[in-house]
Nucleic acid binder design. Structure first.
Lengths: 346, 346
DNA sequence: TTTGATTGGAAAAACGTTTTTCTTATGTGT
DNA sequence: ACACATAAGAAAAACGTTTTTCCAATCAAA
């Protein structure tokens, strides 16, 4: 391995001079600068990153822990994070927790041990344990060699002292439900997502109550994000013969399964039942029928998370955590076309 | 920061003893071992990874460069790589080249500079430049502080001295085309993928020739992997009024767009035209109609790539590169149901 | 001329480990 | 009782940088 010493010897200067030439950290006379540069080139010298890291106690790496890379949601977030991180001289170390809390914990410990400069986490911890988990996390991050900033993604941990970039599941659910009711649905089913307090399910029940529609436990099932689970839940709902004329599915992936099940049962969408999903992933457009959904700004989620993290890395974490909730909006497609055009009433 | 020195002082031993206790690299008396351990615990000492890296000249990180994380193909590959890497004590640094050769090059340089222990690359380099690119790459990797092993994914670089885990696009295309012809298609269009010599397009033309079906340039268009591009190409094909009764689309994502365009044009699948895709991503099942496809073992691709890479890291790269081609198979769904049941002929 | 600042560069310290070498005390076999 | 091996641990070298300190020479002002 060719080191800075070899360069120094060949150029006939001290190693400090070589370092200064490389890092432009002190003025050095033109002719010696040139001699050094030539020595570097002719030896093919590359500065050793390990030594550099040791001196600076910085890795220029950030850790990213996603829930599930195969779900059409996180790839967009990830892509954006990689891009922005790269532009700012950082590298992304990726973990896929696969929705398992154990693997999430493993990943965090790994990242802390490997001294990343910051972490972006999409946590899977159940609501009940959120508080104690946050405490553990704080201890772990502070106990690292150098306190590591962490940004929470998707879920709000700001009450527990973590910067958070959130999506507003509750508000999104309200929008979706308002829409279904607007177009005339009277009896609406819901396929919920797990572990989301004050989220989609709450939006569902609140809107029902506000419109004086009785809540029926039988109309709600819980899925696990996959289209298989959406399929299974929908079949179960159909079996119960609830007379549903609307269905709010917790995410698009499950909605795909729902449409599948409805089609199999020869129930027409939107004529017999209106269906709306959540996330607005790209396949909504090409489903049959095209699926209405609540658009979540995935790229923005990535963008804001990494920007915030970089800020914390450079300027230190602030005593009071930052919280931002991303906008969402309704995207109407054929799956929620009203049977009677609304304006025919006059 | 609490260092090994602090531990040594508190325990009343030398730092070398502490190191040996931590790494179990030499026997130390039970009582001193205990004293050291207590000192470690009470100080909350964590070994500094940068110093460790410097001594060992190892990072325990591998780099992964994917073409596009948002394409339903690489997430599976990536997930598998992350999992296996983690199980073997390695960490994955992710880059998304977004199909851009410049960004791919940037990523590689980055990885080499940051001294990863190995690289898995899904390259986007055009065929014509493959050879010179490979040469450059060899130089770059060898010129690193410590020669870095690299495994090529998806494309065969074994003639250029790189270990390669490939998918066989050519054979897959042949299978797809044979199937279309089997079920009675006489005039088959193709939406090709770019930059794939001896791949899907060759399979397409070869099968045509072998069945004495004349090749017509007008029936072939080139897409860019996205469903938008599949949509656009299909519309263009329709405009040309070619009388197609079969369509082989280079990947499923584009096929999604193709189905969309056909539906818009009121052309029934499979009654009027049979459509088959490539990759067998999960949405094939839930499209309308469900899309026949060529199954590519994505997880296996990741698995084999990382295993091979780990082997090279541990045992050195071999003089003659390893090459493996993954199996594929046909998955028939409704989009290629024959109009007249085949067995009614007797 | 003398003093004091400025400059270009060398020398040395530091970063926190691992690993090799060196020391001393404790056996063991004759 | 003597040489000799073994064991446990200390001391020191090494990894390749960055950064601080130091030195000598040049230059400007008094």
């Amino acid at each position: 391995m060719v080191t800075i010493k070899d360069v120094a010897k060949l150029a006939g200067v001290s190693i400090s001079t070589v370092s200064h030439v490389i890092n432009h950290t002190k003025h050095v006379q033109e002719d010696t600068r040139l001699r050094v540069q030539q020595a570097i080139d002719s030896l093919g010298y590359k500065t050793n990153i390990f030594a550099k890291n040791l001196k600076s106690q910085k890795s220029n790496r950030i850790g990213l822990i996603v829930l599930d890379m195969c779900g059409l949601f996180f790839p967009y977030v990830t892509k954006e994070i990689c891009r922005t991180a790269g532009e700012n001289g950082y590298t992304v170390t990726l973990y896929d927790s696969n929705g398992s809390f154990d693997r999430e914990t493993l990943a965090i410990n790994d990242l802390v041990e490997s001294s990343v400069d910051g972490i972006i986490l999409s946590s899977v911890v159940p609501q009940a344990e959120k508080s104690s988990y946050a405490a553990d996390l704080h201890k772990l991050l502070a106990g690292a060699q150098k306190s590591i900033p962490l940004v929470m993604m998707e879920r709000d941990f700001s009450p527990y002292g973590f910067d958070s970039i959130c999506t507003d599941s509750y508000a999104g659910a309200r929008t979706a439900m308002e829409h279904l009711i607007d177009i005339g649905c009277k009896r609406i089913g819901h396929i919920a997502v797990q572990n989301e307090p004050n989220g989609r399910l709450s939006g569902y029940t609140d809107i029902l109550r506000e419109h004086h529609i009785p809540y029926d436990d039988a109309c709600v099932l819980s899925g696990d994000f996959t289209h298989e689970s959406g399929y299974a839940c929908t079949r179960e709902l159909l079996k119960r013969n609830l007379g549903l004329d609307g269905l709010f599915v917790g995410n698009d992936q499950m909605a795909v399964g729902a449409l599948h099940a409805l089609q199999e049962a020869n129930i027409r969408v939107p004529e017999d039942i209106k269906v709306i999903g959540f996330d607005n992933i790209f396949i909504c457009d090409v489903l049959n029928p095209p699926l209405s959904s609540i658009h979540i700004a995935k790229r923005q989620l990535g963008q804001k998370s990494i920007s915030l993290l970089l800020d914390r890395i450079n300027n230190g974490v602030q005593p009071s955590p930052y919280k931002e909730t991303l906008e969402h909006h309704l995207v109407v497609r054929n799956s929620t076309v009203p049977n009677t055009p609304l304006h025919m009433s006059w």
